[in-house]
Design a binder for these strands. Structure first.
Length: 104
DNA sequence: TACATGACTCACC
DNA sequence: AGGTGAGCCATGT
C-alpha cells in the first residue's frame, strides 16, 4: 500500500477520539480510518505504542466483545482494570458491546 | 521470493 | 458460550 506511513497516525487519532466509557473494535477503527479489513494492522499498530503512551488503547477490543490478551496476562488485567475504572463492565469474559460500543 | 506471525473477523457448529 | 477453520494484510526472517 502507498500511505501506510500515515495510517498509523490516522489510527492514533481515531483511537484517541473514543470517549471514556465507550469501546470500539479493531475492525471498526480500521473502517473508520478508511481501511476496512485492516483490523490486524490496527492491533499491530497499538502494539508499537510505548508504555507511557497516553493513547486510550484499552478502549479497543475485538469483535467478540473480548479483550485480545490471554486472561492470565498482565496486559489483560491492566486493560480490564482501566475499563472497569471507566464504568465498562464485563459479563463473564466479555464486554457488552451493545451497551458500550461507540458510534453503534 | 516464500513462509511464518499476529492486541483480527466472520461463518459455522 | 466456546471451538474451529478460512480469509485477511503488513511485517519480519
Amino acid at each position: 500500500m502507498k500511505n501506510r506511513h500515515n495510517l498509523d497516525q490516522i489510527i492514533w487519532q481515531v483511537v484517541a477520539a473514543i470517549p471514556p466509557g465507550k469501546v470500539m473494535t479493531y475492525g471498526q477503527v480500521a473502517k473508520l480510518c478508511g481501511y476496512p479489513g485492516y483490523a490486524r494492522y490496527v492491533g499491530s499498530t497499538l502494539k508499537k505504542l510505548p508504555d507511557d503512551s497516553t493513547l486510550p488503547w484499552h478502549r479497543v477490543i475485538n469483535a467478540k466483545g473480548k479483550i485480545s490478551f490471554p486472561p492470565e496476562s498482565e496486559s489483560y488485567q491492566k486493560q480490564k482494570y482501566l475499563l472497569q475504572k471507566e464504568g465498562v463492565l464485563m459479563v463473564g469474559s466479555r464486554i457488552k458491546l451493545m451497551d458500550y460500543a461507540w458510534r453503534e
